[in-house]
């Protein structure tokens, strides 16, 4: 089968790959680029484990064809910590014990990053609804929400110069 050539920017680096037209962006990230931090939990857009940021918006990479990545800008969990420094959300997730098994964590972090970029002062209810597409079976979400709201607080304090 003839494959499609795709060039796309992933975590700031231009990448190229060949893919089958039926492959998803998730397949390409994992199987072609070995960026396995993005997880597959369902393959049908119901669990959010495969969340990545695609041209600034959080999406399910399982519901995007790999070929659609052509010329786009993609951020994955592997690009979240920069220069050896964890992102504030990553730090807060550790501090609040907001992960148990950790399989949903990359997706939730990507979705939370998109939330805080849009709104650095979400209410608990806003955070819960924003993250409704990210299933977690271990935590009951309690500590996740605490971590996200605490990260938002820290981001606000930093931007206020406190």
């Amino acid at each position: 089968m003839k494959k499609v050539h795709v060039s796309t920017t992933i975590n700031g680096t231009l990448k190229e790959f060949l893919c089958d037209t039926r492959e998803t962006l998730l397949d390409a990230l994992r199987d072609h680029m070995l960026l396995t931090g993005t997880k597959e939990g369902c393959g049908t857009g119901d669990c959010g484990s495969c969340s990545v940021i695609f041209d600034g918006d959080v999406i399910c990479s399982c519901l995007t064809l790999a070929a659609e990545a052509e010329g786009r800008n993609i951020e994955t969990i592997e690009g979240m910590a920069e220069g050896g420094e964890l992102h504030v959300l990553q730090k807060k997730f550790l501090e609040h014990a907001a992960l148990q098994c950790g399989i949903c964590t990359p997706g939730i972090l990507m979705a939370s990053k998109a939330l805080l970029k849009k709104n650095n002062n979400p209410s608990e209810e806003e955070a819960r609804f924003w993250l409704a597409g990210n299933l977690c079976r271990c935590t009951g979400y309690d500590k996740i929400i605490n971590a996200v709201l605490d990260a938002a607080r820290e981001i606000r304090e930093e931007s206020d110069g406190v």
Binding site: G48, S51, V58, L63, A114, G133
Partner: peptide, 9 residues
């Protein structure tokens, strides 16, 4: 229609 992620697509 769907989650935050779905809404963006």
């Amino acid at each position: 229609i769907g989650s935050t992620q779905i809404q963006n697509r």
